[in-house]
């Protein structure tokens, strides 16, 4: 356990020294704050655009506060996922190609703690950033529109966090499998897209798939029943754990992919 903490601390030190601790949350906060702010000021932005004839009356119905939060979540499920995948695509492949992994793995360190420390660092940073981003979105939505049922918001937050962490885990898993970091990010995002697509095209068949989570998170914001979320969350948690263990297994078979 103490070795795991040493590894986890090292991951954090890296996150701090590579400035990931600043830019990842910053992107999330920007994404979260932009949506309510631009929605609120949209009529004025259009009016000042300048290419409208004088006397044009712009009438846009003020959206409901929960709709604004839902749009923010959709932002997170595209750009947010991209940022998470990009910032963790090289966690494993980079260390294996540079020979760093072989420097560490000849020490009496278990493969699972090597992977899980990286995974935990990803989890921490992703959750921190998402909390900050969603918090910003919530704050601006409440101050510019009206308040939203906080229970709904928290529920949608938890469900979406599972999805975000799942995609982060996919990135780490692909990073253990592939040599190229970019390929890992691309594969993770592609698989996430397939999950989301299958869940929305065949809702009955993929009712409990992790790909259903973004839809479920959106549904929470309109106060829908929370009954059917547990199987999805459970399956996602199981798949996440399976991916972490799978990555450790891949690593055990080929600890290093630098030149032999």
């Amino acid at each position: 356990m103490s070795k795991w903490l040493v590894l986890y601390k090292k991951e954090w030190l890296e996150i701090i020294r590579s400035y990931k601790l600043i830019w990842v949350p910053l992107v999330f906060i920007l994404l979260g704050a932009m949506q309510p702010v631009t929605t609120y000021f949209l009529p004025e932005i259009l009016a000042n655009a300048g290419n409208l004839p004088n006397g044009t009356v712009i009438k846009i119905p003020t959206p409901h506060a929960s709709d604004v939060l839902a749009q923010t979540l959709q932002q997170f499920s595209t750009l947010g996922l991209l940022v998470v995948a990009l910032s963790f695509m090289g966690t494993l492949s980079g260390e294996r190609i540079s020979g760093m992994a072989s420097m560490i793995l000849v020490k009496p360190v278990s493969y699972l703690s090597f992977i899980s420390s990286k995974w935990a660092a990803m989890l921490s940073l992703a959750l921190l950033s998402f909390t900050a981003g969603y918090g910003a979105a919530w704050y601006y939505t409440v101050s510019l529109f009206q308040s939203v049922n906080s229970q709904w918001v928290i529920r949608s937050f938890i469900i979406f966090a599972f999805w975000l962490v799942f995609v982060g885990t996919l990135t780490i898993w692909f990073s253990s499998l592939l040599r190229s970091a970019a390929a890992a990010a691309f594969s993770a995002l592609a698989v996430a897209a397939v999950f989301a697509l299958t869940a929305s095209l065949l809702p009955n068949l993929f009712q409990w798939s992790p790909g259903n989570l973004p839809q479920l998170a959106l549904a929470q914001l309109t106060g829908q029943s929370s009954k059917e979320i547990w199987p999805s969350l459970g399956i996602t948690a199981l798949l996440t754990a399976g991916l972490v263990i799978g990555a450790a297994w891949i690593l055990r078979r080929r600890p290093a992919s630098d030149a032999v």
């Binding site: 103490s2 040493v6 090292k10 009496p108 360190v109």
Partner: peptide, 29 residues
């Protein structure tokens, strides 16, 4: 692995660590 010390042909390091930090990290592992 407890009994072995290994130095690869081209040792890799975390460039963002200091030499001392890396040694402490290795020792703790």
């Amino acid at each position: 692995r407890q009994l072995i010390g290994y130095l690869p042909q081209v040792p890799a390091f975390y460039g963002w660590m200091t030499g001392r930090e890396f040694l402490i990290h290795a020792g703790r592992l």
